[in-house]
Design a protein around this nucleic acid. Structure first.
Lengths: 196, 196
DNA sequence: GGGTTTAAGATTGTTAACAAGAGTTAGGGT
DNA sequence: ACCCTAACTCTTGTTAACAATCTTAAACCC
């Protein structure tokens, strides 16, 4: 039960992550409205939300432009913030983790596996983020997901894995297995070393 | 210059910070639209944005409710994240600080002084945040303001100063003076000890 | 009486028309 | 040739009507 607004937001976000719009480009409401076959309303909502998430830069009466991805020092700093949030939420809520939560994480892991095999960077980035989000929610971190998401989102624009995608998948398997066998310290260590 | 949407967002945010809506309360679009004398459009936009900022919880087809303030351990964690962001941005952009930026900070400081003298908690909380935002922007941290704001926002709902408001103001004066005299280490130390 | 179904009311989601602002080009003056 | 102005065009901002969804309360059956 999702609204058009949410669908549109996700579609545009996917296109941004996939690099279909180059940085600095101005997006027009009418153009995207026609492309997706909806009115400008949901497009405007999506622009607003994606601006909040850090993908787009918004200016009154002038619309939105695609922001440049985070690089270098800034990216590393954000990455450290992200890890801190995950460690905090999982560390605090580890005991809240139930069967249903684990199942959600397992499902995300499956999606990530498929994405890694396909080799499509955009799909992998999305699945990677979805895995971590499932992890946070399963640990009762709903309160923290909002800003975690904002912190992560722009990193997706430069999702580059030094190693192979298979290695990325394996890292996540390691996290999942530690969670399943209730080994808190192992799980936290695995999360900490899961640098993207 | 500023749109109705922005004005409305700010007004509702102020009311939230001032505690005029109790936690858990459901806000109705039509009611606020009538109260502010505008249509539902800008109200919806404001709800969306304030949900992103963490003040409101949004559910599809069911509207928004006022979120509960962060307390205890969570609040301290968020507070530490906030300080890290400020230290990073100021540390990195200290040399970019120009006369205009300093002037903006000075102005925010003046507003904070007036607010502290008035003793109104909501006004003080707002001015406090505005000071730090001016600081970040002056140090070239526009890229980071978005998530910083989200990290801070919910803390405003429980703005409580252990000491007097005058002490709060003095802490900010200390930060400003260090910036003005280009003493980077002193400034960072002052920011670090400015716990709210 | 308890529980389920159904219809009425209230609320949010979406759309299209209208208003307002920014950008651009053509025209006139110097 | 240059600059300023004014009209035009394009884009975003706002509004009000319409559609879809959820909530409620009453009617109904068992």
């Amino acid at each position: 039960m999702t609204s058009i607004r949410e669908e549109i937001t996700e579609k545009i976000r996917d296109e941004l992550v996939a690099g279909k719009f180059q940085a600095g480009l101005a997006l027009r409401e009418a153009e995207l409205a026609e492309r997706y076959g909806v009115s400008r309303g949901p497009i405007r909502d999506a622009f607003l939300q994606l601006s909040q998430e850090g993908f787009l830069a918004y200016q009154v009466n002038k619309g939105v432009t695609v922001r440049h991805p985070l690089i270098g020092e800034d990216r590393e700093f954000i990455s450290s913030i992200r890890v801190q949030i995950e460690l905090y939420v999982v560390g605090k809520g580890f005991d809240n983790l139930d069967e249903e939560g684990l199942a959600q994480i397992a499902e995300s892991l499956k999606v990530l596996e498929v994405a890694c095999e396909s080799g499509e960077v955009a799909a992998i980035a999305k699945a990677d983020m979805a895995f971590h989000e499932a992890l946070l929610i399963a640990c009762g971190g709903e309160d923290h997901v909002h800003y975690w998401r904002q912190v992560c989102s722009r990193m997706l624009l430069t999702y580059t894995r030094l190693g192979s995608y298979k290695a990325s998948y394996q890292e996540h398997v390691k996290i999942y297995k530690a969670l399943k066998s209730k080994m808190k310290d192992v799980a936290l260590a695995a999360i900490n070393s899961n640098v993207t």
